[in-house]
Structure formats: structure tokens, C-alpha cells
Simulated scan of single mutants.
Amino acid sequence: MPLNRSPEGDDTLMPQPATTPNSRATTDALIKYRRDIADLKQRIKNRRLQVVGLYGTPISLVLLILGWTGLKVLFWLESAIPNAIDNALTGFLFFLGIATVAQFAAEFVEDSPWKDSRTPVRKLKLDLELAEERRILEARKLTPPALDRQASYKERMPGEVARLRNESRHYRRVHLFLQWMLFVSSAAISAVTAWFDPPQPAKGVLIALGFTVTVITAAAGYFKPRERAFNLQQTADSMEQHITAIELGISPYDQADDKANLESFATTVEGIRSEQRMREQQLDQPQQGQHEVI
């Protein structure tokens, strides 16, 4: 059984109440609602892909036949189409035909392998809205006490820190890739200019390199991957510092009352996350808008 210090702050260890069957049932019910909502969201995504394939494949088949006919009329009216083009078009035509038949069979057979065959996407969206409304209504009756929610929030934070670090590494890689491309392209412009005296092929190479430098510079200035990586890493480090502090029971979470520690932890971490969202919004704004926000 877990032990805790007494509210007076002395060294007396007091037993914490064990998890009751009622609280376990409440947790299981809330998890079930969230699982049902996640399942409906995935079913909507799958159904959209099925509908796109069901109607897009035969349309592509018709367009391919029309394009094939157009090629024959425009370029090879008096002669045969080259074998390479003819074989490629035949292969695409065969593939689209098989895909069309397979998708229509999966949609309309009795024992369809598709879970939501012959089900409109709007019906699944309505089911999702009803499930979310049901979860909200039931959560009012099943919501655990604030102390339990704060403890659960603390346990979720290591995953949030890992997510922030992964995003930070992603933007750092993007920034390094753009910088190396910029370095190589800028150096290549000078090298090509010094190496080639005739206008061609140096002219085309220089145009391509200049275009690359311009695009990279504009992309780095607009998306700001370096700044995003720095902000995400800073937020992750700050959150990890508070997680370590509350796990070890050190300042500022060294009070005798665990409820006060958890409340202070949740308030502090939410403030850090709010600052991170504000920094992201500032990076998404134009330069003039950033100065106005700051």
C-alpha cells in the first residue's frame, strides 16, 4: 500500500487509500469512450480512402482510355503506336480495370472485407459527433476527483516531453539540411562561374544554383526551423526539470501535501505549454506582426 507523509509535515507515514472498484470502473468507462471515438475517427479516414478509390479508379480508367485515343489521333493516326508506350498504357489499363472490379466487389458483396461498406461518410461523422457528446455527458458523472486528474496529468508529461524532443530533432535536421544545401549551392555558383568560360552549360547550371539558393533562403526565413527546434527543446528541458523535481520531492514541490504539489505542478506545466504555443504563433506571423505581438 502506498505511504505518504502526514499533513503536519512530520515523519509519520500514513497509508493512502487504495484504488476502489468504483474508481477502476470509472477509469475503464472513460477509456472505453475515448477508444470508441478514436476507432470512429480511424473508420472515417479509411472510409474516405475507400470512397476515393471506389469512384476515382473508374474515372481514371475512362480518362486513360480517352487519353490513349487522343494520342492515337494526334500523333499516330497513320501509323502504329510505339511498343513501349503501347505496353505501358496496356499495363495501366489492366491494373485500373482489376482495381475497379476488386473495389466494387468489396463494396457490394455480402461478406465485404470493408468494415463500413455501403456506409456514407456523413453517417460515420454523425456517429462520431454523437459519441463525443455521449462522452462529454457521461464524463460529468464519471469524472474522477481533481487530485486523481492531476496525478494522471503528471504521468502523461514524460510522453509530452518525448514528443517535443522528437519535433525539435525534426526541425533541427530540416535546418541543417537547408543550411548545407545553401552552403553547397552558394559555393558551386562561384566555382561554376570561375570554371566555365562559355555561356553553356554554365549558364543553365548557374540559373539552377541561383534558384536553389533563393528557394532555400526563402524557405528557411519563412518556416524558421532553427527557431522552432530551439523553442521545442527549451520547452522540453523546462518540463523535464519540473517532472524531475516533483518525482524527487524537491523545491518547488517539497510541501508535505501531495495535493498542493500536484496542483502547483499542473499549473506550472500548463503555463510552460501556453508560452510554447504563443512562441509558435509568433513564428507563424509575418515579421511586422511579430513585433506587434511582442
Rank of each mutant, 00 (worst) to 15 (best):
L66S: 09
G67R: 07
G67I: 04
W68M: 00
W68P: 03
T69Q: 03
G70T: 07
G70I: 01
G70K: 02
L71I: 02
L71E: 05
K72N: 02
K72F: 05
L74F: 14
F75I: 11
F75E: 13
F75T: 11
F75N: 11
W76L: 07
W76A: 04
I81H: 06
P82E: 13
N83T: 15
N83H: 13
A84I: 09
A84E: 06
D86L: 06
N87G: 01
A88N: 08
A88K: 10
A88Y: 15
L89S: 07
T90S: 15
G91K: 13
G91E: 13
G91L: 14
G91Q: 12
F92H: 14
L93A: 13
L93F: 14
F95W: 15
F95V: 13
L96S: 10
L96G: 09
L96H: 12
G97L: 14
G97K: 14
I98P: 09
I98V: 15
A99L: 02
A102V: 11
Q103D: 08
Q103I: 08
F104R: 14
F104T: 04
A105H: 12
A105P: 00
A105G: 01
A106E: 12
A106T: 11
E107K: 03
F108H: 11
F108C: 00
E110I: 15
P113R: 07
P113A: 03
W114T: 04
W114N: 04
W114P: 09
K115Y: 03
D116C: 01
D116K: 00
D116V: 04
S117N: 10
S117G: 01
S117V: 01
R118T: 02
R118V: 03
R118F: 03
T119I: 00
T119K: 06
T119D: 01
T119E: 01
P120D: 08
V121I: 06
V121E: 02
R122A: 13
K123N: 06
L124T: 01
